[in-house]
């Protein structure tokens, strides 16, 4: 049985319905990539898994989220809080703003193991120092005493990763963990994170808009488009034989080594805005295969020769 199983969840925030029928699962120790362009609903999906959707005024209107055999939907807030940080941890998109600016780095990591593992102040500190060292940060003791503004973005994101690991969770949700960082250190941070996750046998839901990162790190991929799942498949299958035209475009757009800068081609057309999603398949205005049916009926997410895809005309 999957560690986390998300089945057909739809989300509404006020009058908006930003997610529709999101479905995927993650096994123990698996790294699942969640890709899609900006605005496709990646962060909201993360919020659903964290049980934090009500904090931004949203609610899940349909579907189920089963974690380790328990449906998180309808779970009392106090139960959710015991899972958060302890069994499901978050690595957020912007390390610059994710730490409390007037509290020492160390105290912010200690807080997690103190809260969830009941460690004493000294034990929590010892554990934090060990984690800081594992994230290959020099001089852990000095960093433990430092304040967030004294650290670079990359260092801060390592601290956020340490914080996520502090209570030995089973699942980590990482929402574009390197997007806000300097390009030169992005790959390095991803590599450290993936290594630590693999060493511990943790499951990771890695959100990114970068197919390159997916290729580097993931076992399986879910592709989101405009609030719906376009395709889900294993990493080998999806790169060898994408079933959805949008996935094909995404793969085509990965910058290749040796490619001249500027020759990078994006997908033609633009992502539709949430306020006027097209009828039928939401990808139809940008799809070269689009037929009359595509403008009429939304394709269901269905099993293909391997994985799942939502396309009326996917060949296999």
């Amino acid at each position: 049985m999957a560690l986390l199983s998300v089945q057909g969840i739809s989300v509404s925030i006020g009058a908006l319905n930003p997610l529709e029928g999101i479905t995927f699962d993650i096994d123990k120790g698996e790294i699942l990539g969640l890709v899609g362009e900006s605005g496709s609903g990646k962060s909201l999906t993360a919020m659903c898994v964290m049980g934090l959707l009500p904090r931004i005024g949203g609610s899940i209107t349909k579907g189920s989220i089963v974690f380790d055999g328990r449906d998180l939907i309808g779970l009392p807030e106090i139960e959710l809080r015991r899972l958060r940080g302890k069994r499901i941890a978050l690595i957020s998109q912007n390390p610059m703003t994710s730490l409390d600016p007037i509290i020492r780095i160390g105290a912010q990591i200690d807080q997690v193991s103190n809260l969830h593992l009941g460690l004493s102040a000294e034990a929590a500190k010892a554990r934090s120092l060990e984690l800081i060292a594992q994230l290959r940060i020099p001089e852990p003791a000095a960093i433990h005493r430092a304040y967030p503004h004294q650290l670079s973005g990359g260092m801060k994101q390592r601290i956020v990763i340490a914080m996520a690991l502090a209570a030995d969770p089973d699942l980590i949700v990482a929402d574009e963990p390197t997007t806000a960082l300097d390009v030169t250190i992005q790959a390095q941070i991803i590599q450290i994170m993936v290594e630590l996750v693999r060493d511990r046998g943790l499951a990771l839901m890695l959100i990114t808009h970068d197919m390159g990162v997916v290729a580097q790190a993931c076992d399986r991929v879910v592709v989101l488009y405009a609030g719906r799942v376009a395709e889900m498949n294993g990493i080998g299958e999806i790169f060898a034989e994408p079933k959805h035209p949008y996935t094909r475009e995404l793969i085509r757009c990965i910058p290749r080594f040796g490619q001249a800068p500027g020759s990078l081609k994006g997908i033609p057309g633009t992502v539709p805005s949430i306020v006027d999603y097209p009828d039928g398949c939401r990808f139809n205005p940008r799809c070269s295969n689009a037929q009359a049916l595509c403008r009429d009926q939304a394709p269901a997410l269905e099993p293909k020769s391997s994985g799942l895809a939502a396309c009326h005309f996917s060949e296999v």
């Binding site: 934090l52 809080r81 958060r84 978050l90 957020s92 409390d100 600016p101």
Partner: peptide, 14 residues
């Protein structure tokens, strides 16, 4: 409304 407060909720702090 700050990000770090959402992060504290994500950490499971009461």
């Amino acid at each position: 409304r700050k990000d770090f407060v959402m992060m504290l909720h994500a950490k499971g702090v009461p």
